[in-house]
Design a protein around this nucleic acid. Sequence first.
DNA 1: TGCATATATTAACATATGCTCATATTATAT
DNA 2: ATATAATATGAGCATATGTTAATATATGCA
Lengths: 109, 109
Amino acid sequence: MEEHKENVGKENDKELDEETLFVVSQTFKALSDPTRIRILHLLFHKEYPVNGIAENLQLRQSTVSHQLRFLKNLRLVKYRREGTTLYYSHDDEHVMHMLKQTIDHACHS
Amino acid sequence: MEEHKENVGKENDKELDEETLFVVSQTFKALSDPTRIRILHLLFHKEYPVNGIAENLQLRQSTVSHQLRFLKNLRLVKYRREGTTLYYSHDDEHVMHMLKQTIDHACHS
DNA sequence: TGCATATATTAACATATGCTCATATTATAT
DNA sequence: ATATAATATGAGCATATGTTAATATATGCA
């Protein structure tokens, strides 16, 4: 019950608590690496298996797998299994929207 | 004249070009560090001198100065001079909006 | 000019990050 | 049970990053 955070009202002037700081920084950290950006950008429209991502982006399978684990831990991607193949897709609309906005912003500069 | 980027239309399916990738990743990298988040969060409502930021956030002067240079290079902050004092303030509405959104998102989780 | 205040810069250090190779795991089919 | 395909994991390495102390720079003023 008592699990609401600080600063829930309209007064967000106080210092950020440590947990919020951590979550926010981790979220942006996910978007701060070119490889992860490329992966999320690829997943924008449709799901891909790990090898599909690797082939599309010219990356090693282990590189993709490591980054997908990173993104999975932050719940930015999810997967569904089909045999031995795992189809990954994005799982955070807010983050994907920020990414799209920022890409558009950068493209039009 | 010919300096527009790729993917300016509605078809953003192609791979991201290297420059866009760099700008986007740098932008998010700025927001991926707790210290920089705290600084930008402090600058949300009003300007502060370097020492004011340091005192408020309990950081060394050199730490603040380094991070402000980082943010300044990305045009995320600006400053005005008054004597020997430099008053820093935010300078990118889009980024500040994303930061606020993500903080709120994290707070309410 | 000389001094004080505010800020910037440099170099050093410890830690974090991302990629790679090699290997392990998992599921499926024979 | 064995083999195969797809993915995950671990260790090692090079580079990036953030903080710090020490020092330099710049501005204003006596």
